[in-house]
Design a protein around this nucleic acid. Structure first.
Lengths: 110, 110
DNA sequence: CCGAGTGTTCGATGAAAACCATACACTCGC
DNA sequence: GCGAGTGTATGGTTTTCATCGAACACTCGG
């Protein structure tokens, strides 16, 4: 039941246990930033990993999601064969006030 | 006069022209984060580049300051033989509200 | 005008990170 | 129980970045 294409369920890290460094590094990558933004504009649990429009292969994509999990930015759940995502808005906001909002509503440096 | 050990004066970039990516990447490095924090606790223009307590050589240090300038985080001015620094608090805050404050008053991830 | 102090530049090195292609694991509909 | 769809793991390549040592440029005090 509900254990998609993975031996074990995704391992999550709570934002509370994340260092600023890790958080910043996670968001400093263009692909991940794109994922986070796209995710922010979607209904929770509505997007599977493969449904994002980024210019990388599956392997790299999977890796990026692992990084996002490791930064407490994304939560994942297995739903049948696919793994659906959710942006941990509230929790992340509590740990890093303003950060998420900052990267989300950014005027791309004019 | 006032052109220390450098052909040309330091080239600055205003925070307004900096992308989030660049800003985050600049702050995601341990050495640079250390520099910013130490600088935040000092009087403006009081610290020369060499006066910071970081475990890297001069060359690397010089590079890190270049990155910080490129992210609009630091302003430099030549004062005799040395180059003194200032944290661009207000300008940076205006461009990335909350970010600087966030990395400065951080509980190192418990 | 020399020597000490300061910072940048260059070239090279090493480590980290992103990426791909492939192979594998799991789910589900047929 | 196949076969398609989805995601992970592994191995290897490439790129990026932090770092160093050494050479250079500039300032200033004797």
């Amino acid at each position: 039941m509900a254990t998609a294409s993975h031996r074990t369920a995704p391992e999550h890290i709570h934002p509370e246990d994340v260092s600023v460094q890790t958080a910043l590094a996670a968001l400093a990558d263009p692909v991940r930033l794109s994922l986070v933004r796209e995710l922010a504009g979607s209904v929770e649990w509505s997007r599977s990993c493969g449904s994002f429009d980024v210019p990388v292969g599956k392997a790299a994509l999977s890796h990026h999601f692992a990084v996002l999990r490791g930064a407490g930015l994304v939560e994942q759940r297995d739903e049948g064969p696919r793994r659906v995502n959710r942006l941990r808005r509230a929790e992340f906001e509590a740990r890093f006030p303003g950060l998420l909002e900052l990267v989300l509503r950014d005027d791309p440096a004019v």
